[in-house]
Design a protein around this nucleic acid. Structure first.
Lengths: 146, 146
DNA sequence: ATACAGTCTACAGCGACTGTAGGGGCAAGT
DNA sequence: ACTTGCCCCTACAGTCGCTGTAGACTGTAT
């Protein structure tokens, strides 16, 4: 099979061209061969690796975690527990975030429920944001952006 | 009541000193009075405003949305529906994110479930990340970081 | 031959902060 | 009066995971 340019790799792995170059710059993709004129050339191995990265990103793994996973992938005789640990950690984070967002959803619903129209001066949504005395989310650490 | 320094405001509103200065720089907090030696001086109004911002951030509102809310707050005679709209939009985002995270949780659980130990070479977690053919999360847009 | 899409490098920008460097200010204790 | 030690100041760089821009070159189709 003959090599493909970065654009082909991009559409094969569904990762943008600029992102691929970025991944290369942070050492996630290794330095590819180049054509005589300097264009990057990739093979099917790269499609798989890049797809792996994309899917791991979709699962919310950090770049660091992905680097670790790739490192482990290249040593197939090693014990599987390291992989499991990373995945467990990721699940724990997801579940923590879920709990936060559920609390958020409840509070937003409550706020909106209480808003029966009228003027901003008496708006219950504004009041609810102001009054955080009995607020669930205060107990949590600061939330990451949505 | 006499004015307080930025540190007092920080602990009163539970927002870090550096973050307060950042909020000032992006026009969220207005320019405070200064002491003779140039230190920022705040009053209780600022505690309330800053607490409002903090709580809105905890609810996941973007800075832009918060700016809008503050703008509306200063016009108490306006119709409340603008506030309601912002809150509704926020709720919709939270619910979308919740759905994504729930899909993620299912997939991570499935991956970990299938991992019965052994070597990385046969690890089902790695296989699951590689094989995204039947994967739920592929249907979603790319996820924001956790 | 020309047009146009694709590729290259290098660097700036996003959001919402956080951290650092290098200084000046202020109240309490000795 | 002096020192200790925390608080405050500005200005700028760094974080994460990219995205966008500028300006030049390459490859392909008509």
């Amino acid at each position: 099979m003959k090599p493909m340019t970065i654009g082909r790799l991009s559409s094969a792995a569904k990762v943008k061209v600029t992102t691929i170059r970025y991944y290369e710059s942070i050492g996630l993709m290794g330095t590819p061969d180049r054509s005589a004129s300097g264009q990057r050339l990739y093979g099917s191995v790269d499609v798989e690796r890049l797809s792996f990265v994309r899917h791991a990103r979709e699962l919310g793994f950090s770049m660091d975690a992905i680097k670790d996973l790739i490192g482990l992938q290249t040593e197939p005789d090693q014990d599987c527990s390291a992989v499991d640990t990373i995945a467990q950690k990721q699940l724990a984070e997801v579940q923590k975030r879920l709990a936060q967002l559920e609390a958020l959803e409840r509070e937003l619903k409550r706020m909106i429920e209480n808003c029966r129209g009228g003027k901003v001066g008496g708006c219950q949504v504004m009041a609810a944001i102001n009054d955080h005395s009995e607020c669930e989310t205060d107990k949590h650490e600061r939330l990451k952006p949505l």
